[in-house]
Computed example of a mutant assay.
Amino acid sequence: MTTRRTAVVTGASSGIGAATARALAAAGFRVVCAARRRDRIQALAAEIDGVAVTCDVTSSDSVLALAHEVGEDLHVLVNNAGGAFGSSPVESADPDQWRAMYEVNVLGVLHVTQALLPALRASGDGLIVNVGSTAGRIAYEGAGGYTAAKHGTQVVTETLRLELCGEPIRVSEVAPGMVRTDEFSLVRFDGDREKADAVYAGVPDPLVAEDVADAIAWIATRPSHVNIDELVIRPRAQAAQHKVHRTG
């Protein structure tokens, strides 16, 4: 009997994280679903024959508990937990929102990666996939804190790849553009459905979570000697951050 390879997905309770857990399970991985909302990850883990671990990536103690549950051997880590909070210009931005974005998008990646690196190394064939954003490549108005945080995610990824060169660990970043999920824009606009819907208004076929999850699963199933450094993925309607085709 062949033992399934293990993957950890943070932020697995919804959106890209939940879709990625499903995609990796379909590819044959035993998936550890990590997120704060235990009811959601328990249902997901039951669906995909995985494991649910309640985890807040901004808490080092919580992350150490995740590492304990994972054990000594891990093949894939998907640092997906993240988020955007607020849309104010720099002049009037709430520092607490900026701090929260840095905590989850940068320090969360740090906490989880540090805790799970020994298990990734022990597997002899590890992979880290950090979920960044096209916001980590270009600034745009009203998103100073988010773009700063996602630029941080990108640089952490690049630094890890340099520092782990020569070890049996690959390091990748997936950077999505417009992805319509149930919660991302609602959280950003503090539950304002009208503002959240306006982001995607008239955009024919924005990306959905499954599109990004498919890309992550593809990276995770490349041969061990193949490292996908970075993968930028946008819908056809989005040529750049400021160039989006809208109908109507």
Rank of each mutant, 00 (worst) to 15 (best):
Leu160Phe: 07
Lys195Leu: 13
Ala27Asn: 05
Leu162Ser: 09
Ala198Lys: 00
Asp96Arg: 10
Gly136Val: 07
Ser172Gln: 02
Gly11Met: 05
Ile48Tyr: 04
Asp125Phe: 01
Met101Arg: 11
Arg188Asn: 03
Phe184Pro: 01
Tyr102Arg: 11
Arg161Gln: 13
Thr2Tyr: 08
His245Ala: 14
Ala52Phe: 01
Thr6Trp: 07
Thr54Val: 06
Gly15Glu: 12
Gln241Cys: 11
Met1Arg: 13
Ala149Leu: 07
Arg99Ile: 12
Asp192Tyr: 00
Ala119Phe: 08
Ala81Pro: 03
Ile128Pro: 03
Ile16Gln: 02
Gly15Pro: 12
Leu162Tyr: 07
Pro206Gly: 11
Ala217Met: 05
Val57Phe: 04
Asp94Pro: 13
Leu66Ile: 05
Val63Asp: 00
Glu158Asp: 07
Val208Ser: 07
Asn130Leu: 02
Leu117His: 01
Ala220Gln: 09
Ala240Leu: 14
Ala12Pro: 11
Asp49Leu: 06
Gly191Trp: 00
Ile138Asp: 03
Ile128Tyr: 01
Asp190Glu: 10
Val129Ala: 12
Glu141Pro: 00
Arg234Ser: 13
Arg246Gly: 14
Asp49Cys: 07
Val106Met: 09
Thr20Pro: 10
Val70Gln: 08
Tyr102Ala: 14
Arg180Ala: 06
Leu107Tyr: 04
Val131Thr: 14
His111Glu: 06
Glu194Asp: 04
Ala25Phe: 01
Val106Arg: 05
Ala23Met: 06
Leu120Ile: 06
Leu162Val: 04
Glu69Phe: 03
Val212Lys: 04
Gly17Leu: 03
Glu141Asn: 06
Trp98Ala: 14
Thr54Met: 08
Arg99Val: 09
Phe85Asn: 13
Val129Ile: 15
Ala19Trp: 06
Arg36Val: 06
Val53Pro: 05
Gly177Ser: 00
Tyr140Met: 04
Ala201Tyr: 03
Val31Gly: 03
Asp205Arg: 12
Gly191Pro: 08
Ala217His: 08
Ala93Ser: 15
Gly248Ser: 07
Gly144Val: 09
Cys55Asp: 06
Met101Ser: 12
Thr58Leu: 02
Arg222Asn: 15
Met1Gln: 13
Leu66Cys: 05
Ala139Gly: 02
Thr147Leu: 02
Arg161Val: 11
Leu231Asp: 12
Ala81Trp: 01
Glu163Gly: 11
Gly132Ser: 11
Gly144Tyr: 00
Asn80Phe: 01
Gly83Thr: 09
Ser224Ala: 15
Arg36Thr: 10
Gly124Met: 00
Cys55Ile: 08
Ile16Arg: 02
Ile219Gln: 14
Leu127Trp: 00
Ala215Arg: 03
Met1Ile: 12
Ala139Cys: 00
Leu110Met: 12
Pro168Leu: 02
Asp182Gln: 00
Asp73Met: 10
Thr157His: 06
Asp229Cys: 10
Val244Gln: 14
Ala239Phe: 10
Asp94Thr: 13
